[in-house]
Design a protein around this nucleic acid. Structure first.
Lengths: 341, 341
DNA sequence: CTGTTAGCGCATTCAC
DNA sequence: GTGAATGCGCTAACAG
């Protein structure tokens, strides 16, 4: 069927092993033979069979990437970083979109094991982590991104979410805001939890008392923001001058809600997000947010993973990248005081 | 090292082939033995080696996905559809992000051949197509999405771009617009070319004369829209009442430019896009656009591909999906007449 | 129904 | 330096 090393060997008048050596540069080969081999390769249009090589060498040069939703711009950016780094280092990447479903996630890990991927770059969907623990228990390399899972001591690349969120709160406080609503992410997702804590700490730093009725949880969707903003306004009885969302998408939803009700951003209420997705700078007004080094997250994760595949480290490394505040026009000075709807 | 069929066979007191038969349901096996095999599998934590299976069966159950840019929401949606369909049909998906670079694209196709993927779902970067022709020449299945490549008679799933663009023009004409600017995509990208033609046809249908100075080409980026909108306004000397962009991202750029210069959408100028990416409904005002059945494009492409892998068809099928106009608030009645900046 | 045999295509011993 | 032999883990004949 397809042309094999043996075919090349025959055409070049050498043995299969010699062909292999030439192709992989494992061992020196006489220049003359080497040339004949290369020529035969070209002549026959030989293409090595990666499957056979992987089987023999017991490594597939393939990595798995599992994300909750590739259409989420944040994960798309991460995926791009992961893809770039993988191919740069000679690995192919199998894409798995878990759709935030734990069951699908479990199935994917199974498939990836069967495919004998050399490692896994992973943004876990929920808090759970059984499937992941099972994976790690087999000694298979895995690097978590964005969030960590309780009880799994694997490599991870995350953002300093607490710090990032405090940056936002400070910014708002400096602008004179005293009553700030918060739209958080799902409980149990570590990055969301950290942002929640960062928000509380930011308030405390400023001597502000948190009000639990002004803090709601969402699921990182636009709809959450859309619904939460009016709810927060109502809960604050007109005192609210700013809203911080735990993701840009939710912030965009909040902004939309404000506009729909005839409010203006930032005049009526300031709004800030987290992530700095592309859309953040494209909306009107452009969104103040916390920029995560997304590309870098993906790239560092792969580098860590490949290092571990090569057996470099033995203890898990935990990389925390610093985010930075990006001030745009969705935040402004707090209104002098008092009632507005 | 890892546990193999042979280990299972020994543990169950049967031959390796029987284990294989039980696992694959190829041939009936005595209930008792079957049970013992299954038990041994569970007991030993056996996991089939997909690499070995693929080598033997000469099919990898893997597909390649090549897109220009996974962070482009349009391609991200497509990727999601492709991923879902692939895994549903039992295939894994290798993700390749060509970054719109022909050379990277070429390298990817090479890698994918070495990996012995069973087929390729492909959004080609440019007009070229040599690498693709080489691929197809080897009889390897490929399905194009969104755009086709001249001289390559492969399966393809596309949108009826001409029709879609005419829908937009009709809509605008009905609103009273007579001087409409157009921001097109790159020449040689078939989908962009079709939209260009559709725009011209739409004008003609309405008895409007195209003005070449009111039609510019871009590269589907936000920046293109940002720059093109003012340029079109200037070229029209105040007569322009509407702008149609060949993609939502460019439309968003145009909208931003209008806002930056103090204009209002749609009062000053109506703006329409193409694709209906998520952001289109989230911006202010929500964008009138042509919705492509993105998810379906991805899914149909995979189904076509898998069908071809199975050797179902022999002639290339060319699927054209109908887009639909989504009227939102970025388009409105043309102003009574005359000058505005 | 089931065991035995024989590769899939390659890289790696081990001798020379 | 190089060839012959071996086996990675699996499934598909081929007999029984």
């Amino acid at each position: 069927m397809s042309v094999t090393v043996l075919d090349v060997a025959r055409a070049a008048g050498v043995s299969a092993s010699t062909v292999s050596r030439v192709l992989n540069g494992t061992t020196p080969v006489h220049a003359a033979k080497r040339r004949r081999v290369l020529q035969a390769v070209r002549h026959l249009g030989y293409e090595p069979n990666g499957l056979a090589r992987s089987l023999k060498q017991r490594k597939s040069l393939t990595l798995g990437l599992v994300v909750p939703d590739i259409t989420n711009p944040f994960f798309a950016e991460i995926a791009k970083g992961v893809e770039t780094a993988s191919h740069r280092l000679g690995y192919s990447l199998i894409l798995c979109n878990s759709g935030n479903a734990v069951e699908r996630e479990r199935r994917y890990l199974e498939v990836l094991r069967e495919r004998r991927v050399d490692g896994l770059v992973f943004v876990p969907a929920g808090r759970h982590g059984d499937a992941l623990r099972a994976w790690a228990a087999r000694g298979l390399p895995v690097v978590l991104m964005d969030r960590v899972v309780a009880g799994v001591a694997s490599d991870a690349v995350t953002t300093d979410n607490r710090f990032g969120m405090k940056l936002v709160v400070r910014h708002l406080v400096r602008l004179g805001h005293r009553t700030i609503g918060f739209i958080g992410g799902p409980r149990g997702v570590s990055s969301a939890d950290e942002r929640w804590v960062g928000f509380l700490e930011g308030l405390r730093e400023a001597g502000l008392a948190p009000e639990s009725r002004l803090m709601v949880r969402g699921d990182f969707t636009f709809e959450t923001g859309l619904r939460a903003a009016p709810a927060l306004s109502a809960a604050a009885r007109g005192r609210l001058t700013a809203i911080v969302a735990s993701s840009d998408v939710m912030a965009l939803g909040a902004m939309r809600a404000v506009h729909q009700r005839g409010g203006r951003v930032p005049e009526t209420v300031s709004i800030a997000g987290f992530d700095d997705i592309a859309a953040a700078s494209l909306v009107q007004p452009p969104l103040t947010t916390v920029a995560q080094p997304v590309r870098e997250i993906g790239e560092r994760a792969v580098e860590l993973l490949v290092g571990r595949v090569a057996g470099e480290r033995t203890r898990p490394s935990f990389v925390r990248l610093k985010p930075r505040l990006v001030v745009r026009h969705s935040t402004g000075p707090a209104p002098a005081s008092g009632a507005r709807r």
